[in-house]
Amino acid sequence: MSRAVTVLETGPLTTVQDLGRPGRGALGIGRSGAADRSAAALANRLLGNDAGAALLEVTYGGLVLRAEGDLLVVTTGARCAGSEAHNAPVPLPAGRGLRLGVPETGLRTYVGVRGGIDVEPVLGSRATDVLSGLGPPVVSAGDVLPVGPASALPPGVDLAALADPPGGEVTVRVLPGPRRDWFGDTGWTALTARPWTVTAESNRVGLRLDGEPLRREREGELPSEGMVRGALQVPPSGLPVLFLADGPVTGGYPVIAYVADDDVDRCAQLRPGQALRLRG
């Protein structure tokens, strides 16, 4: 029998992700892909997978799956109780289960399998884009997800020594966005002086932040313009939205700043209630 994983429980949200669909912005198609790219890349490296192999992105734990065939698995990102494979691949023999509890810190856990999750790609990628609806359906209990053939590469290092995502206040670097001048120096200072709180209305599209609303120094309509992940867009409420992997390709509200791309992965691990400090 070909190898697969049977999903018994998904937790709040589990999707299939990979590197996404870059290069299609002109068609209105966003990149999508793993929200924490570095954690997903680590999983594939540890397994000896191609960088583009698909894996499972588990939001706030709760995934239960069973191996159909002998597998090699790893988890990265948010460390869930119950995973013996965290940052260190372990064999999961046929019939054995993997049960992820709730992570102590962080939000997204990547479950990689040697050979990759081999569902049908859509426009060159197996990533589920929750905004546009492109890609495979959200993972449901009862799904049997095929596992692809292992690459010729042997699995990589045995163990990656890596700090878990932090639970308290997180500081990231911000750079000017195209409409910084709509908010003036006062707005920039307000953005960077105090920490923001991540709200529960956050998802793969973006983090909605709560705090002291930012004030525009100029009025006017902005024709929609292109954005990439990390954009801090300020809607009329004055409360910024930090766009993540499934953010829209274009937006009609001013982008005051961007989180430096290298720091966006850490933002994808923030949970509702956590504080985010934007350092200018």
Partner: peptide
């Protein structure tokens, strides 16, 4: 440059840093 996003008055150039 890995992606281009034209819009009403702008073109976004996305690079591979």
């Amino acid at each position: 440059v890995v992606d281009l996003v034209p819009a009403a008055r702008t073109v976004l150039l996305v690079t591979d840093p």
